[in-house]
């Protein structure tokens, strides 16, 4: 394949809450085997040498597992290919002479920090609300004490693959965090170890996501289509069911006797 040249139309924004704008940058003579992020590296070195500020973008592992990279390329989170992260997008997916827009995620709960970098700490807060099984180190029973049917473990693993990149919420026209929440709730809800806190978990995580300002789900499944791990929206159905069940159970179960003042 021959080397190509493209124009990058990049969102530049100096800081949180500041006005931003698109700026065009030429990227010339690119080896098709180069990754999209490596192309940005090269453009950044050129900018640096010209005395301009390089484009800030988030990245770390560059192999699609850490969930740091988060570009919206031509309107789609993580670019044109399905089932890959921005860092696994290669120059060969583009054509010579193409104008490529590169934007940050745009949703209220993920405010822009600078240029293409957004603040996704909202996802951490959702996890803190209930995305765990309470086990103190040292108190765990023997690992093989509870068998887990293979298919349940595999399905849980399908959900657990989530890399927390936020593409689902970015792709959703409602900025909903449903796929993210669903993946975590389903993963833990499918494991026998996760049953004790199952209801409490789903209620807390959904309410926290709502409170952080994520939107609701309209079942259009843009999330799973944008997900670099192609996590299925079946898990959203599971989340809905778990939430509704937990709401009904919470309404009808009898309350344990609590010590006054507890």
């Amino acid at each position: 394949m021959k080397n190509i040249s493209v124009t990058l139309r990049v969102w530049r924004q100096a800081g949180p809450g500041q006005p931003g704008r698109f700026v065009d940058y030429p990227a010339r003579d690119l080896n098709p085997a180069m990754s999209f992020l490596e192309m940005l590296d090269v453009v950044n070195d050129e900018l640096t040498l010209k005395g301009e500020e390089p484009i800030a973008f988030a990245h770390d592992c560059r192999e699609g597992i850490c969930g740091t990279c988060s570009l919206v390329i031509n309107g789609k989170p993580h670019g044109p290919r399905q089932g890959v992260a921005s860092c696994q997008t290669y120059v060969r997916s583009f054509e010579d002479g193409q104008v490529i827009t590169v934007e940050p995620y745009r949703l209220r709960p993920f405010p822009v920090v600078k240029d293409l970098v957004t603040d996704r700490s909202a996802f951490d807060k959702i996890q803190q609300a209930g995305g765990f099984i309470t086990v103190r180190a040292g108190s765990a029973p023997n690992a093989n004490a509870i068998p887990v049917p293979k298919d349940d473990a595999e399905l849980a693993m399908d959900a657990a693959q989530c890399i927390g990149c936020g593409a689902c919420a970015a792709a959703c026209k409602n900025a909903s965090a449903m796929l993210f929440v669903a993946a975590r709730v389903s993963h833990l809800g499918l494991m026998p170890q996760g049953q004790a806190e199952r209801d409490r978990r789903v209620l807390a995580m959904v309410q926290t996501a709502d409170g952080l300002g994520f939107g609701s789900c309209t079942n259009q499944y843009e999330c799973s289509a944008a997900c670099p791990k192609l996590i299925s929206h079946d898990f959203i159905a599971r989340l809905n069911r778990d939430f509704i069940k937990a709401s009904f159970k919470a309404a009808f179960r009898s309350e344990p006797n609590r010590v006054v003042g507890d």
Binding site: N174, G213, A225
Partner: peptide, 28 residues
Amino acid sequence: VLTLESRRARGEQHDRTWIQATLASRYM
């Protein structure tokens, strides 16, 4: 209510494309 909240959640969006949502779903 859900529509308004979702709009607020989304904020400004520049270059957005649909990936695969059905036509019917886009015009609910």
